[in-house]
């Protein structure tokens, strides 16, 4: 079979097909390519996140950053103890409670999650798009809560402390070999104790240009937020049935 034909097949899938071989083994190029992808994914997971610098950028945009903490003390602990990444420290909870404001419709929470690379690359431009899209819906955001080493369910204590009607978390997704810089967005209506992941909506794979664009993600989020407030729920009961909107093919 010709090289052109193999090339055409290779374009039909991101899978590592038609790699060739050296004896029974993968050829050198294929081994090194895999190891580079794995190295990038590992670095994205283990890199620390410069939260102070991120907070300065947030403040420079005229928004109010609030830095909060989970009880997690290291990246290793973060990986082994997902339960700790879902909780606020007592200090942080107090600080957020002092920001409690009934005018806050949406609590915006930002955490590096499993990819600091994703947050550093896409976090600020995505926030630009989200803040604009929510404002266009007439929804007030309050301070932007920045937390290192958070898990998705941290949406609940943060949202509850701020008194928000909806919590929106922007989080670094678990890196794969083909993408180390995807952000996810999770929406929770009536954040508080007892919510499960079945009560959240997720917008995944935000990483232009290969994945979802900032504008498309923000628009989808604003649509879901409006529907959640009308239906008074989120999660499996809130279907993404926005007319005339199709996600671009990956």
């Amino acid at each position: 079979m010709s090289a052109e034909a193999w090339e055409a097949l290779r374009r039909s899938t991101q899978a590592r097909i038609a790699l060739g071989r050296a004896g029974h083994a993968l050829p050198t190029d294929a081994v090194l390519d895999f190891q580079l992808a794995h190295a990038r994914a590992r670095d994205a997971i283990h890199r620390s996140w410069d939260i102070a610098s991120f907070a300065s950028s947030v403040a420079a945009r005229g928004w109010v950053p609030v830095i909060a903490s989970t009880p997690v003390t290291s990246r290793v602990e973060y990986l082994k103890r997902p339960d700790l990444g879902r909780r606020l420290t007592d200090d942080s909870e107090q600080r957020l409670r002092s920001c409690h404001d009934p005018a806050i419709d949406v609590a915006l929470i930002v955490t590096n999650g499993l990819s600091s690379t994703a947050m550093d690359r896409h976090g600020l431009p995505l926030l630009d798009a989200i803040v604009a899209a929510l404002a266009a819906e007439g929804l007030g955001c309050g301070p932007i809560c920045l937390v290192g080493n958070g898990r998705v369910a941290l949406s609940d204590p943060v949202g509850a402390a701020l008194g928000a009607r909806i919590a929106v978390m922007v989080v670094g997704e678990r890196p794969g070999l083909s993408a180390d810089d995807s952000l996810g967005i999770y929406l929770t209506y009536a954040p508080g104790p007892g919510n499960t992941d079945a009560e959240r909506n997720c917008i995944s794979n935000v990483r232009p240009p290969a994945g979802l664009s900032y504008a498309a993600a923000a628009r989808k989020l604003a649509y879901l937020a409006r529907q959640a407030l009308i239906l008074k729920l989120s999660g499996v009961g809130l279907k993404d049935d926005e007319p005339g909107f199709a996600l671009p093919k990956p």
Partner: peptide, 21 residues
């Protein structure tokens, strides 16, 4: 799995070549 890289489930396993090994 092609090249041990599952592009749908986003994890790494063993490849066709690994079985040959």
């Amino acid at each position: 799995i092609p090249g041990a890289d599952d592009v749908m489930l986003a994890y790494q396993s063993t490849s066709f070549h690994d079985a040959l090994y």
